[in-house]
């Protein structure tokens, strides 16, 4: 799963540490999310989307066909 966290974070001028503080995770987690090594839980995805004032699907890009 790809994401736009780096792009959205930089657009707001936040550091990784600032974003980490806002969503209550460590900076290392933000680094891992941005590099695509770690996929966020639904709860963290929701927090990140809320933090960016965006929908989850605008932050996280599902590669597989998620339609039901």
């Amino acid at each position: 799963m790809k994401n736009r966290i780096t792009e959205l974070r930089k657009a707001r001028g936040w550091t990784q540490g600032e974003l980490a503080d806002r969503v209550g995770v460590t900076r290392q987690t933000i680094i891992s999310l941005e590099s695509g090594r770690y996929n966020a839980s639904l709860l963290l995805a929701h927090k990140l989307a809320a933090c960016f004032d965006a929908a989850i699907e605008d932050v996280f890009l599902f590669e597989e066909d998620a339609s039901c």
């Binding site: 980490a20 460590t26 770690y38 966020a40 963290l44």
Partner: peptide, 8 residues
């Protein structure tokens, strides 16, 4: 934060 961080 460090302890409850979901990646940790």
């Amino acid at each position: 934060v460090k302890e409850q961080d979901e990646r940790e």
